[in-house]
Amino acid sequence: MIRPSRQKSRHQLHGRVLLICSLLASALLTPPQRALAGFTEKQLAGFEVTELTGTVSEALSKEKVIEIVDPEGHTEIYTVGLDLAPLGLQPGDEVSLSVLDGLLVDLEASQDQELSFSREDIILPTDMGKLKKGTRVALASGTGRVVKLDRQDGSLSLMGPFGGINNLDVLVTPENDPLEDLKVGEFVDFRLVQPVAVDVRKLPTPARGPSVFTPPLAADLLRSGTTLKAELLESFEITHLHATVTRLLPDQQVLEIEGPEGHNILVTSAVDLNTLRLRPGSNISVDLLDGLVVELRPSTIKALSFERQDVEIAGDFGPVPKGTRVAMATGSAEVVRISRSDRTLSLRGPFGKVHNLDVSKRMPGKAFDELALGDFVEFRFIKPVAIRITPLASR
């Protein structure tokens, strides 16, 4: 879904929801023969379910629309495939949701260099898995700019005209791979099914205040001979994105970047930072080996903790040479988002930040499959590693 800027005013938020409500109302007039709007049942069945928590900012029961602020501070608007009225949701309520993630079904290079967006809503004529007959589904099309790309797991992030980011799964078939020749920074014409909430649960409001701490940028390299087996990196996925440098520590090959969604990400670098002449504020193109969870178990301690240690890779792994410094993090955290089909997890740590992580395929499935939102876990994960950094002209 194309999300409005996080800096928008309360008045703008309400106006955006009212606009969507008018679009929803007009969708009821959609003729039955256009009910699929060109989307096949197979395409709609390609959704993945994500579990997440959030704070309600608007809930419109009649129109079946909910607007939430997710754990990372993003404002998201979902159509809902169930009756919201019994929940009696009000702004400020905490909820957990089961969401069928946004699915991209058409994508091609665009001749336009301007961002655009249009929306059409339909009523499903038949059951489609968790999407039941009569569910309202939002369809969107327009022109967006690629800001993040992961070919291995078929995901894409597009910047839309409202200043927000579309995080999408891409429907890849043997006959058609829309991501094959795509590059970060390009403009594309798209058609997509927006995320749909298929379950909404009201939660007790947590007594959680804002964190005043920041994660440590530096850590001593363990000199005890501790190394990380390169085989662990086999589960890493490569993500391409544009980012802005926020902090630098070249001597330790560590930098902090702000990604396209406004997240700050601490990464170690397989590239010699001293050769790049970077400084805070520099715009860069980055290829990242995404953060990877290698140990995960339920925690008996309902508190958040974090410790960082740096180790060296024991052998060459693709573009990452032997001896590369890798940051390891251990501690306890709260589960705030789960996607079981693509084995991704979001953990809220003690600094108030949310870590979006892949779960190693080498980890026993039971540890991951039995997790629930709100669980506290003890973890060990490899922080993201930059394997290519290209300075960009400031925009």
Rank of each mutant, 00 (worst) to 15 (best):
T330I: 11
S299L: 08
I313L: 15
K130T: 07
H242V: 12
P391C: 06
I265T: 13
L28V: 05
I122N: 03
A140Q: 10
L357F: 03
S57E: 13
P174Y: 06
M363S: 07
R223D: 14
P384R: 06
A25G: 06
R337G: 04
D272R: 12
V105N: 09
L89V: 04
L255M: 14
G15Q: 14
A393Y: 09
E67N: 07
I238C: 09
P350G: 01
G291P: 01
L84K: 07
E94P: 02
I257P: 00
R223Q: 15
P250C: 05
L292R: 01
T126H: 10
I2W: 06
E108R: 14
D290H: 02
R395W: 10
P204E: 14
F187I: 04
L241P: 00
V326E: 05
P91E: 06
L23R: 13
F187M: 11
P384L: 06
T244H: 03
Q152C: 02
R247C: 04
G331T: 03
M1Q: 08
F39D: 07
D169K: 13
Q309D: 03
I2Y: 08
T126S: 11
R136E: 00
K62G: 06
D251T: 12
L345P: 00
K148P: 00
K64T: 09
K302N: 10
E48S: 11
F351E: 04
G323P: 03
S211W: 01
M128S: 04
P319R: 11
P364L: 07
G54H: 07
Q309P: 00
Q33W: 11
I257N: 03
L60M: 11
V326G: 02
L347P: 01
V65D: 00
G349V: 10
K366V: 13
S339V: 05
R395L: 12
L347V: 02
V336P: 00
Q12R: 13
V105I: 08
E261K: 15
E48W: 02
S299H: 09
T143V: 15
L347S: 03
L392P: 02
P319C: 04
H14Y: 11
V49K: 11
T30M: 14
A386F: 07
D177K: 01
G315V: 00
L87D: 05
H11V: 12
D177T: 02
K202H: 09
T390E: 15
L179C: 07
T173L: 11
A333H: 03
E63S: 12
H11W: 09
V69N: 05
V254R: 14
F376N: 11
T300K: 15
G374W: 04
V146I: 11
V320E: 00
R34V: 10
K42G: 07
P178F: 02
L288I: 06
L104M: 12
Q309E: 10
A303F: 02
G15P: 00
R10L: 12
E186D: 14
G160S: 06
P280Q: 10
P125S: 12
G38S: 02
K133I: 09
E41V: 15
A393C: 06
T40M: 08
P364S: 09
S26I: 12
Q252F: 10
K229S: 14
Q43H: 08
L29I: 04
